[in-house]
Design a protein around this nucleic acid. Structure first.
Length: 256
DNA sequence: ATGGTTGCTTAGCAA
């Protein structure tokens, strides 16, 4: 079973590229973030034509998450139980082939110390509570998505330049570590120990050709699922195409 | 320190 995550930065703009990538890779499930698309306008038909059903949780302009799958997902949950009515659309969970998939677009946080940064820390705290109250670490589960945190210095192209900055600061790393300690294993790091492997590169200043990136998109599995992970990898190829997302897909294969 | 780019929406924000 192949599970992938990809921040597409607008599913409307990226639709042709997403369809091509899916056809080439045929993941059993693909988690999307930053769809920036209300549910009524989500391109269900285009995905159905290549064999995928979709569970979506979108909004206008910002955010938005979706789970595409070959087998229809069951038991979809949209948002967290303690969300306000107008909460940003950043979490969708559903079960595919017996694996619970929790797809998140964790807040970026703006500048360290800003209101958005505080919102990010609180959102991570609420995510831990969601796992405590709505999930079971003894069951096969994957938490994946755009985490907007580079967990360690080896996930950063220039750790000295990024020290203390957004995506790398210690409080957000600690808040994400608290999520991990619920009972999750980074399956990418199970298979790749080295630095220099990234999932996001800024659009500006030629960051991609210089490999000035960060590893902020992740697939974290509970122990019973992680032990079945045969491989995990980052596919950089879409970043070199015309009109790319600033993120690339991250993928894992589980032998179930 | 600033600017560099993209997407959505319409000059400015978010990333």
């Amino acid at each position: 079973m192949k599970i992938a995550t990809w921040n597409v930065n607008s599913i409307t703009v990226r639709l042709p590229q997403a369809l091509d990538w899916i056809e080439a890779n045929r993941p059993d499930a693909l988690c999307l973030q930053e769809t920036k698309c209300v549910d009524e306008k989500f391109p269900f038909d285009a995905f159905r034509e290549i064999g995928y059903s979709a569970e979506v949780f979108g909004q206008r302009t910002y955010n938005g998450v979706a789970i595409l799958s070959l087998s229809p997902a069951t038991g979809a949950q949209r948002g967290m139980p303690d969300d306000d009515a107008d909460a940003q659309k950043r979490l969708i969970a559903a079960t595919v082939n017996g694996v619970k998939i929790v797809n998140v677009y964790i807040p970026n946080g703006g500048e360290v110390g800003s209101d958005k940064y505080q919102f990010k820390l609180e959102w991570l705290s609420r995510l831990r509570k969601f796992l405590d109250q709505s999930c079971d670490a003894r069951r096969p589960l994957v938490l994946c998505g755009d985490f907007n945190v580079a967990p360690e210095d080896r996930d950063v192209h220039d750790p000295d330049l990024w020290a203390g900055k957004i995506l790398c600061s210690e409080p957000e790393r600690a808040a994400l570590q608290n999520v991990r300690e619920w009972g999750l294993i980074d399956v990418f790091r199970k298979h790749h120990e080295e630095s220099g492997l990234f999932s996001w590169w800024d659009y500006r200043a030629g960051a991609f050709p210089r490999n000035h990136g960060l590893r902020i998109d992740h697939l974290w599995a509970t122990a019973p699922l992680a032990e079945k992970c045969a491989d995990a990898w980052i596919d950089k190829t879409p970043r070199a195409l015309p009109k790319p997302s600033d993120h690339v897909p991250v993928m894992a294969e589980f032998v179930i």
